[in-house]
Design a protein around this nucleic acid. Structure first.
Length: 371
DNA sequence: AACACGGGGCA
DNA sequence: TGCCCAGTGTT
């Protein structure tokens, strides 16, 4: 139950004090903690929305090197921003980052707003990110509730409801009551550290936890049981054909995706539509051939060769990509505006300069040995 | 192979 | 309020 703890102001104060003490001794050393300016805090929070700290670190360092200030980011071409984001996934966040930098320069004189409502009006900034910025960069007493904090609080209270909007409302209340007026920024980072290093999804290290004596899940000996989650849906399998078309001069065809929708603005080799896998026990050969896909783009090619299929898991489905390499003969690519905005014949040693998602990097590498 | 992380945006 | 989003690392 969240209720009784909400009213026990002495216990709430004790918990926040113990956590701050833990933070003073065990905080992680992270580059954005060297200098808690609002630009660093915002960038790190957006990157950490989707990935663990270890993956984010090199991206953060490179991004900061390339765009050291909000102004630098706002002035950069979107393509450069996407280039430094490639491989991190969820590319809409990179576009929002760029948009927000430009909006702050245009509408806020280049200075980050410090009001919750103004922050929430910026793309890519929701309640948690806005609160994290206000708490960590401006030391204002706003509560955060990311995945780590949800887990910590669900265990502290032995929350019996699965995480959903209703139960999370209760956790938001609790998170707010726990947030101290003194050092709210350190507190926000402390509770995220606790979830990341001690109160982990599996095998939590309860003996090292400053909240151990007060944690209802721990007292019941069921720490790992919380938070309660609903059974996950199995991901559907889908497949697709990807084409590597090379010209006599060795250049390869890349197409730039349209500026809206999936992978907006990123480059890719021409690919078929994504189709559902209809087989149950025996995989059927794709009913679509590389040549058909090629003609769909208005191109003629010959000498098709294939390689091992590429398996890639996305958030909502498993994809098998069948790679085909062909020698281009004639035709200019058709631009179907819904999918692409432009195309280019790219020399192999220039491919590294284009923003390309992980799956399509894999596709380009499949034939690298053969080239 | 299953699971957890992760939160904003939109219909 | 449910659903969507072209991943990744761990077990």
């Amino acid at each position: 139950m969240v209720g009784p703890l909400l009213e026990d102001t002495d216990l709430l104060l004790l918990l926040s004090r113990r956590l701050l003490e833990f933070y003073d001794h065990h905080q992680r050393s992270l580059p954005w903690r060297d200098n808690l300016d609002v630009y660093s805090v915002w960038l790190s929070e957006v990157m950490l929305q989707q990935t663990g700290v270890v993956t984010v670190l090199p991206y953060y360092q490179r991004f900061m090197g390339e765009f050291p200030t909000l102004q630098a980011l706002a002035q950069a071409p979107l393509e450069r921003v996407l280039f430094h984001w490639q491989g991190l996934g969820y590319y809409q966040r990179a576009r929002h980052l760029h948009q927000t930098a430009q909006m702050i320069v245009l509408h806020h004189g280049g200075v980050f707003p410090q009001q919750l409502e103004l922050l929430l009006a910026l793309p890519g900034i929701g309640r948690n990110t806005a609160s994290a910025i206000l708490a960590i960069a401006f030391n204002r007493p706003y509560a955060i509730l990311d995945g780590n904090v949800k887990r910590v609080l669900a265990r502290l209270t032995a929350l019996e409801a699965p995480l959903n909007r209703v139960s999370e409302q209760c956790l938001w209340q609790l998170a707010q009551r726990l947030t101290p007026v003194e050092r709210p920024g350190d507190y926000a980072q402390a509770i995220m550290d606790l979830g990341a290093t001690i109160c982990t999804p599996r095998r939590p290290q309860c003996p090292r936890c400053p909240w151990q004596p007060y944690c209802r899940a721990r007292i019941a000996g069921r720490s790992e049981h919380y938070p309660i989650t609903l059974a996950s849906v199995t991901k559907p399998r889908r497949w697709q054909i990807g084409l590597l078309l090379s010209r006599a001069d060795g250049r390869i065809l890349l197409m730039k995706r349209s500026s809206r929708g999936l992978l907006a603005g990123l480059w890719e080799p021409p690919c078929s539509d994504i189709l559902p896998e209809t087989t149950t026990d025996q995989p059927l050969l794709p009913a679509l051939s590389a040549d058909t896909v090629c003609r769909g783009f208005g191109l003629e090619a010959a000498d098709w060769t294939t390689a091992q299929p590429i398996r890639h898991t996305f958030t909502h489905f498993h994809l098998t990509l069948f790679p085909w390499q062909g020698r281009w003969l004639s035709g200019e690519p058709d631009i179907n505006a819904a999918r692409h905005q432009s195309w280019d014949w790219v020399a192999p040693d220039e491919i590294g300069q284009f923003p390309i998602a992980t799956l399509h990097r894999k596709l380009l590498q499949v034939f690298r040995r053969g080239l």
